[in-house]
Design a protein around this nucleic acid. Structure first.
Lengths: 367, 367
DNA sequence: TTGAAAGCGCTAACAA
DNA sequence: TTGTTAGCGCTTTCAA
C-alpha cells in the first residue's frame, strides 16, 4: 500500500493525475486519447497509469458521454444452433469493434421480449439487435427505436418497424427445396414447423410465413393441388408437434416427402419416422432447413437448406455499429441473403419409394 | 411534446420530481423503493413517473451505488451445445434475480480470455462466471477476484484460485463409462478429445484431465495395460483430430471401443467410422460425453454420458448472486454433480464384434 | 417525512 | 498545451 491508494477500491483518473502531477483533465485527455497533450506529459501520465494499474471505469465514461459501447441482443433461444451461430457472429464482430454484448433470451414469449427490451434500455445499450417473436406486437420495439435506440432486425422482418433488416430469402429457399422435391416426382409434400398455429397468418413470424408461401408457390407452379392438412404447425411444443406429425404419417396416403423448417423439427421427424419404421429416403424423403453439424452424420445424411446465418449476423452487427458511429444513410434498408440447398441422401425419386404395402391410388378420401 | 420534456432525451428523475412537485430525493426514494415516504407523496410520484414514461437509468444508478446488476460470463464457445445450455441456464437464473448478463467468448484462447475479463471489469460487472481455458495461466482471474470481483468457476477447476467451483464429477463419469465398456469385454479402449495435446499434463483443462484419469483408473482396476497411443488429443483442431483418429482406427488392432469427451468429438468419430466403413456397434463401440439432442437420432442411437450442465450453471449463478447479495459463507466451496450414463445402442459386447477379416491377436484374458 | 447537497468517475466546454 | 469547472442521473448522508 503506497501513496494515495485507498484499499479495495480501484484507482481513479484522479489518482493517476495526482501521481503524474498533472490535472485530471490532462490525464483524461491522454487516457481517453483525445485533445492535445504534450509528449512528455503524456509519458508521465502513462507511467502513472501503469504504475497504478489504472483501468478506466466504463460506467463513468458512459455516464459522461451518453454512450455505453454495449449492444443488446434479444433472441428466442440460444440452445438452437441457428441462433447460437448468430450470437457467436455478433459477439465476435462487436468485440472486434470494441462493443460488448448483453444477451437476453425470450423463448418466443412476447412478455419476456418486452421485459428484455426494457432492461436493455435501462442499461442504456447503444443499439439493439433483435429477432422479434411477433410481427404484430412490436410497440416496445417501436418505442425503443423512436426513443433513439437504433434497432436492427435479424432473421425476421417487421415492415411496419421500418428498421434495417437482415434476413434469409426464405421464400426462395423454400420454393427451391420444394421444387427439387417435385422434380423428383413427389406430389404429396408436407411442411412441418415449430411455430404457433393459432391466430391469423400475420401472427406467424416472417421466416415461417415466407417459407410456407414459397412452399405453396412451388406446388402451385407445378399445378399440384394444395392440401392444407399438409402444413403442420407445432406452437413451440415439441411433444404436440411430434404427435401431429405421427398422425399425419401414420396413414396410407401419407406424404411422400417433407420439408422441415429447422433442425429441431428434423429431429422430431427422425424420431417419429423411426417409431413408425418409415425409412428415409425409401419411404419418405426429407429436406430440413439449417445445416446443423449433425445433419451430415445421421443415416442417411440429410439434404438441407444451408442458411448463411453467421454472415447475416455479422452484417447486422456491422450495420448497427455503423449507425451508432454515424456513418450511415438515413433510409432503412433490407438485406436478403440467399440460402443454398445442400444435396445429400435423404431424398429419393418418388417412383422408387415403397408404398408400404398399400395401394397408393386415392379412393374416396377418408379423413 | 408537453411540460418540461426535452426532445429526444429520456425523462430523468428530476423531471419526475418536478412534475410530482417534490424534491429529487423524495422521487428517488419512491422510485428506488427505499426510505420513508408518505403515502400520497408516493402516489403523486408514481403518477408523474407513469405520465412521463420514466425509466430509471441503470448506468447512473450503478455509478451511485457501485453495483451494476450485471454479471459477466466468459466461456469458450457458445456454438457448443454444452455451453449453450450453460448460458441459457445462467441468463434465465440471472434475469429472474434482476441481473443482466454480458457474454464473452474465448474460443479457448487465453489472450482473448484475458481481454474479455478486462472489458468486463471495466464495465464493472458485479461478478464473473468463467470456464477458464487454462489451469495455469490464471493471473487475470486472480487479479479480478482480489480486486473485489466475485468469481465463480464453471465446468473447470483451478484449485489455486480458491474460488467457488461448479463442475461435473468427470473422473467418476469417465470411470463408469469405461468400466461399462470393460464389462462388455472390451480391452482396447481409446479416449478421444478435442483438447490440446502440447505441453504438460497440467495444461489440460481440468475436465479433460480428470476424464483421462478416470479412464486410466478404470483400465487399471481391470488390470488392462494402458497404451498411451489410445489417448488422442486434437488441440481444438477438428481436421487434425479427424486425421489422428483415422490413423488410429485404420489398423487391424484398432480399438474395439472409444470414449469421446464431447459431442463434437463424437461427430468426428461418426464421420471417420463412416469413411472407414466401420459399423457401430458391430465393429466399434462408442460412448460420448454430452447428451446432445441428436445423439438419440443417429443410427444407432448413441450411449452417452449425460451431464447436468443446466443444473450446474443455474447453481453457479445462484451461488454468485448469493455472494453478491452478501448472504454467504466466507469459505469457497466446490460443488460436484454426478453425470449419468444413458445406455442406448452404440455399445456391443466385444466378443460379438467382427474382427473385420483379420485374425485377432491372441490374448489370454477373457473373463 | 422531506429537502439540500455532496458525491460516484469521467468527459468536455471554456479559460488561461 | 494545460487547468478549471460544470455536468451525466442517480443515491445517500445530514439537517430541517
Amino acid at each position: 500500500m503506497k501513496e494515495n491508494e485507498r484499499v479495495g477500491s480501484q484507482p481513479t483518473i484522479d489518482d493517476v493525475a495526482r501521481v503524474a502531477g498533472v490535472s485530471r483533465a490532462t490525464a483524461a485527455r491522454v487516457l481517453g486519447s483525445y485533445g492535445y497533450v504534450g509528449a512528455d506529459t503524456r509519458k508521465k501520465v502513462f507511467a502513472a497509469a501503469k504504475k497504478l494499474a489504472y483501468q478506466p471505469n466504463q460506467l463513468a465514461r458512459s455516464m459522461a458521454t451518453g454512450r455505453s459501447k454495449t449492444i443488446g441482443v434479444v433472441i428466442a433461444d440460444i440452445e438452437n444452433l441457428y441462433f447460437a451461430r448468430a450470437i457467436r457472429a455478433i459477439t465476435d464482430t462487436a468485440s472486434a469493434k470494441g462493443f460488448a454484448v448483453i444477451l437476453a433470451t425470450t423463448d418466443e414469449d412476447i412478455a419476456l421480449e418486452r421485459e428484455a427490451v426494457r432492461v436493455l434500455l435501462s442499461k442504456r445499450v447503444d443499439g439493439l439487435i433483435v429477432s422479434p417473436t411477433s410481427s404484430i406486437d412490436v410497440d416496445h420495439l417501436k418505442r425503443a427505436r423512436d426513443g433513439g435506440c437504433p434497432l436492427v432486425l435479424l432473421d425476421r422482418r417487421v415492415p411496419v418497424l421500418n428498421a434495417d433488416t437482415f434476413a434469409i430469402d426464405n421464400y426462395g429457399a423454400a420454393h427451391q427445396a420444394v421444387a427439387s422435391l417435385i422434380a423428383k416426382g413427389h406430389q404429396r409434400i408436407a411442411l412441418v414447423s415449430n411455430a404457433p398455429s393459432h391466430g391469423e397468418k400475420e401472427y406467424l413470424i416472417s421466416s415461417v410465413r415466407e417459407r410456407i408461401d414459397g412452399y405453396r408457390a412451388a406446388l402451385h407452379d407445378a399445378n399440384i393441388e394444395i392440401d392444407p392438412n399438409l402444413v403442420v404447425l407445432g406452437g413451440w411444443d415439441i411433444e404436440k408437434l411430434a404427435e401431429k406429425v405421427r398422425r399425419l404419417f401414420d396413414t396410407p396416403d401419407r406424404p411422400s416427402a417433407v420439408l422441415a423448417t429447422d433442425s429441431s423439427v428434423a429431429l422430431v421427424l427422425l424420431n417419429v419416422f423411426r417409431n413408425l419404421r418409415l425409412v428415409i429416403p425409401d419411404e419418405v424423403s426429407l429436406i430440413s432447413f439449417d445445416d446443423a453439424d449433425w445433419t451430415a452424420a445421421v443415416t442417411p445424411p440429410l439434404t438441407v437448406v444451408s442458411q448463411p446465418i453467421r454472415e447475416l449476423a455479422a452484417a447486422a452487427t456491422e450495420d448497427l455499429i455503423a449507425r451508432l458511429t454515424g456513418e450511415t444513410t438515413e433510409t432503412s434498408r433490407e438485406t436478403l441473403l440467399q440460402a443454398t440447398l445442400v444435396v445429400r441422401d435423404s431424398v429419393s425419386t418418388a417412383s422408387a419409394q415403397q408404398p408400404s404395402g398399400k395401394v397408393k391410388r386415392p379412393r374416396k378420401a377418408s379423413k
